[in-house]
């Protein structure tokens, strides 16, 4: 879901400051109602969480369309006074609801067995430090192996994603292993690094020669 629109009555009494906007009960109720109907409509598309039964979280983030607030938030008073029309909620984003079924591991190659066409890798789940996997990955499992081949070397970083996600209301299966394409060294970058290293070497040599 890219963005959704919701017209809503708006009261300024619960606006606390320019950074954090608290909604009135009325406004919140409207959003929840919207969320519920969304939930109902898309319930069939809510994918199975790997660990739990299908669920739909009713938490949501809202972002006010700044352009519809006809004021610059110089002061709270000005801000309160300036709101004259219902504001559009540009985005209603359901936190993680559609992405909970995605598992994402970041790994690096520790060994390559060309004969049997395997790579051995250690993979880390960035959301759960204790979830570290060791994998024996077949070359065939690597998406676009031919074009990725040159990237396969010991220490090469890759990402492994699998699961299901909902994009624009459609459920999709996602599964791929892709190697990270590191940016190339530029001449200026190399010069900067080398100059920095030479400076450090010089400073350290002077430091230790003093003693």
């Amino acid at each position: 879901m890219d963005s959704m629109y919701l017209d809503s009555p708006y009261s300024n009494e619960d606006i606390v400051d320019s950074d954090e906007i608290k909604f009135t009960d009325y406004f919140t109720k409207n959003l929840k109602h919207f969320a519920d109907s969304f939930n109902k409509n898309y319930n069939d598309l809510c994918v199975t969480n790997f660990d739990k039964e299908p669920e739909f979280k009713k938490e949501f983030n809202t972002v006010i369309d700044e352009s519809s607030i006809k004021c610059k938030r110089k002061s709270k008073k000005n801000f309160y006074n300036s709101i004259s029309a219902p504001n559009k909620v540009r985005e209603l984003r359901f936190i993680d609801s559609f992405y909970k079924s995605i598992r994402e591991y970041h790994g690096f190659i520790s060994r390559i067995d060309y004969e049997n066409e395997f790579i051995f890798a250690t993979m880390h789940n960035l959301k759960n430090e204790s979830d570290i996997l060791k994998a024996q990955i077949e070359f065939d499992d690597i998406e676009n192996y031919e074009s990725e081949k040159h990237l396969i070397q010991i220490g090469a970083p890759f990402i492994w994603i699998f699961g299901r996600e909902v994009i624009s209301g459609r459920e999709q299966k996602v599964s791929y292993i892709r190697f990270r394409r590191m940016p190339t060294w530029t001449k200026s970058r190399i010069q900067d690094i080398e100059a920095e290293a030479e400076e450090t070497a010089d400073a350290l040599s002077k430091l230790f020669s003093k003693s």
Binding site: F50, R103, T122, E129, S130, D131, I132, L133, K134, A135, Q136, I137, E138, D140, D141, F162, G163, K173, S175, I177
Partner: peptide, 17 residues
């Protein structure tokens, strides 16, 4: 099992942390 369902033939083990 899930990995296999997603079309991967790779084998995994959990690394002790």
């Amino acid at each position: 099992k899930q990995i296999n369902q997603y079309g991967f033939d790779s084998k995994i083990t959990r690394v002790s942390n």
